[in-house]
């Protein structure tokens, strides 16, 4: 009787994906000998697998590893120590930004703040933390440089006619000449491909990619924080 039962789709998939145990595999192979419909269905599944694989056979990264790759990655590896100490790079934005308080004890020549989101709570907190950091450094007579690097949807904060933070960013830059803004060219390219014209706020510069800029700054001994 069991020979007459249909082989479930899950079982068929598991067969073509090599996920059956030996006993089930043997039973199914035996069944195939007398079940033409099953053979055809399995053949179709196998063909679909090949089609999916073939569909992406020529997919290659458009951008190779950053030019400063070897040394850059070494710096990233070193950075991992900083992250581990400060508890950054977590998923929770509040926790990430909250950890920025630890910056006050960090002796670094510069701070690169990575903004990859345009969400209000992320940007508001990041800008507030940057201002507090610069203000404290000035009061303590410490020379520091802060750079805000924006990509993905975070690029919006640096776009003329799009940014809800244009005035705040301009005020901050006027108050702290040691604060700079950098936009990711790769993100801008992507927007351009979608027909979006990207114009930056005054004084904002492009970097080839956010990663390039972050790696470059870390090579210079800067500390990285993700907003």
């Amino acid at each position: 009787m069991s020979q007459q039962r249909e082989v479930s789709r899950e079982m068929q998939n598991a067969f073509v994906d090599g996920q059956l145990d030996a006993a089930d595999w043997t039973a199914l192979v035996e069944r195939m000998g007398s079940d033409e419909a099953l053979r055809r269905e399995l053949c179709e599944l196998r063909t679909l697998k090949d089609m999916v694989k073939g569909a992406y056979a020529d997919a290659r990264p458009r951008r190779a590893a950053p030019a400063a790759d070897r040394r850059g990655w070494a710096r990233v590896a070193g950075l991992a120590l900083v992250f581990a100490l400060a508890g950054w790079l977590t998923h929770d934005a509040t926790e990430r930004i909250g950890a920025a308080a630890a910056l006050h004890g960090v002796a670094a020549s510069g701070l690169v703040v990575h903004v990859a989101s345009s969400r209000g709570e992320v940007v508001d907190t990041a800008l507030q933390e940057v201002e507090d950091y610069l203000s404290d450094a000035r009061a303590a007579g410490r020379k520091v440089h802060v750079e805000i690097v924006a990509n993905q949807t975070g690029l919006d904060i640096l776009r003329a006619g799009k940014s809800a933070y244009a005035k705040q960013l301009e005020r901050l830059r006027a108050t702290y000449p040691n604060l700079t803004y950098v936009a990711c060219h790769q993100t801008a390219d992507r927007l351009s491909e979608q027909g979006v014209k990207v114009k930056l706020l005054p004084g904002v510069h492009f970097a080839p990619t956010a990663l390039d800029e972050i790696v470059k700054r870390m090579q210079q001994g800067w500390v990285y924080i993700r907003a």
Partner: peptide
């Protein structure tokens, strides 16, 4: 990249996501 591209079908976004993945991975190597 191949996986990222197959998920989003946007080559530039896939590049971004892969770079972000590598940064996060090395930041959490432990």
């Amino acid at each position: 990249f191949r996986l990222a591209y197959s998920w989003c079908h946007d080559a530039a976004l896939a590049d971004d996501i892969v770079q972000e993945t590598m940064l996060r991975a090395l930041g959490r190597a432990e």
